[in-house]
Simulated assay, not measured.
Amino acid sequence: MLCAAAALAALAAPASAQSAPADPYPVVVVDCFSAAQVQPEEYILACGDGNNRLVGLHWHTWGAGTATATGTDMVNDCRPYCAAGHFRPYPVEVTLSAPRPWPTHPGVQRFTVIRLLYTDTAPEPVHKDVTYKLVY
């Protein structure tokens, strides 16, 4: 979280003509609130209702092209309906990829694809290996 705040603060700072070129900004993942995140401990996948979130993320890599982590996908089973449902844990390997320019923040790259590989069972009807576009 601190890294994300530092990255956003750096966006607001004016560049000095006399300073050496700064290192490129880290690639970020954008959350449901349009905030930049770097190695977040949690990440909401279902922005509309919060019924699916990644928790306990342990990042193994965070690079210019990909980022990898392990953690738990907490999914509401919505039985008998979502408000009365229970969150179930599913161990998962997470890969972020396909960095692209973040249109509202010139000079910042954001990951645009997330891959979830369930290491045990997957929540029904999801396959054990799924890939989603990140559109935030």
Rank of each mutant, 00 (worst) to 15 (best):
M1Q: 12
M1R: 13
C3T: 13
A6S: 10
A7F: 05
L8Q: 13
A9I: 02
A9L: 07
A9F: 03
A10H: 10
A10E: 14
A12Q: 10
A17I: 05
A17C: 11
Q18D: 15
Q18R: 14
D23R: 12
Y25N: 06
Y25D: 04
V27D: 05
D31L: 06
F33C: 10
A35G: 06
A36V: 03
Q37D: 14
E41W: 02
I44G: 10
L45Y: 07
A46F: 09
A46E: 09
C47A: 08
D49C: 12
N51L: 13
N52V: 07
V55Q: 11
G56E: 11
H58I: 15
H58M: 14
H60C: 08
T61I: 03
T61A: 09
G63V: 10
G63T: 10
A64K: 14
A64L: 06
A64W: 02
G65F: 03
A67M: 01
T68F: 00
T68V: 02
T70Q: 07
T70G: 06
T70M: 04
G71D: 02
D73R: 03
V75T: 11
N76K: 07
A83G: 11
H86D: 15
F87R: 05
R88M: 12
L96K: 03
S97T: 08
W102D: 02
T104N: 11
P106Q: 00
T112K: 01
T112P: 07
T112V: 03
R115Q: 09
R115Y: 02
L117D: 12
D120W: 04
P123N: 06
P123S: 04
D129A: 04
D129L: 01
T131P: 03
T131N: 04
L134K: 01
L134F: 00
V135D: 11
V135L: 15
Y136H: 07
